[in-house]
């Protein structure tokens, strides 16, 4: 197996006086969808934000593509090849969809072929191309948020709960987009609460609890083992 695209080694992150991450060990293999699962408040979002440099790891290291990025400023981490889709979407509401996309293409101009591909994945973007992003619906905003990260090719995408609060039809669109991204050869670290989506997309799974990764293994193993789900995430299949 080739070396992983991303590796977290004993990462501790504090936010104010709270010790959120307490020694996270995480490996994201190349070309796979790696799931980051767990109950609310166990540190999944903080893990993603530590990787992109929004929060700083107080201990441990983050290695991306063989380079230690632990202390790099956020823009440098992004330009090194990591696309980030935050939970709150963070679209620029006063700018148009087009302007949002132009901004996201940091290396210069938008690659037209890639844009056409994004239009086939998210037709709504083409429809609302000249509209202010603030006027989009919740699902459309989420599509814009993901499309913005996808407009330039990145080696790794960090995606935080892309299906939260969305209608089933849009969830399907999201899942297909992530699948296509993977088929292009990208590596993806995905936080997802919707277990059906996780099951369909994930290659490997990492379950967090109390600021640590407590279980890692193939997604298929977790998906078929109800006891494990119950123990790790308080899930039971009846509820899903």
């Amino acid at each position: 197996m080739s070396d992983p695209i991303l590796k977290l080694d004993g990462v501790f992150t504090n936010i104010a006086q709270y010790h959120i991450l307490q020694g996270v060990e995480l490996t994201v293999p190349r070309g796979e969808v790696t799931m980051l699962l767990g109950r609310n408040g166990v540190g999944k979002t903080t893990t993603l934000r530590t990787i992109i440099g929004h929060w700083r790891a107080h201990q441990g290291s983050v290695t991306f593509d063989g380079q230690n990025i632990t202390k790099l400023p956020t823009p440098a981490i992004a330009r090194a090849g990591i696309g980030f889709v935050p939970e709150d979407m963070g679209i620029f509401a006063d700018l148009t969809v087009e302007e949002n996309m132009i901004l996201a293409a940091v290396s210069g101009a938008i690659d037209d072929a890639r844009l056409q591909w994004l239009f086939t994945v998210f037709p709504a973007l083409e429809t609302f191309w000249k509209k202010d992003a603030g006027t989009l619906s919740g699902g459309q905003k989420q599509m814009l948020s993901i499309a913005r990260a996808m407009i330039e090719e990145r080696a790794l995408y960090l995606i935080d709960e892309p299906t939260k609060g969305l209608a089933p039809a849009i969830i399907t669109t999201m899942a297909r987009a992530i699948k296509e991204l993977k088929d292009q050869g990208a590596s993806i670290l995905l936080v997802e609460q919707n277990f059906a989506v996780a099951k369909a997309l994930g290659d490997t799974a990492n379950v967090m609890d109390d600021g640590r990764v407590v279980w890692s293994g193939p997604m298929s193993e977790l998906a078929t083992n109800a006891d494990l789900q119950e123990r790790l995430m308080g899930l039971s299949m009846e509820a899903h």
């Binding site: 400023p73 992004a78 330009r79 620029f92 700018l95 901004l103 940091v106």
Partner: peptide, 24 residues
């Protein structure tokens, strides 16, 4: 200009602008 657009983006969500790759 593109500079102005980035400024607006920073005004709306500076962390997001950084995560895209702009030095706020």
């Amino acid at each position: 200009s593109p500079f102005g657009r980035v400024l607006q983006a920073i005004r709306e969500n500076d962390f997001r602008a950084e995560a895209i790759g702009y030095r706020v």
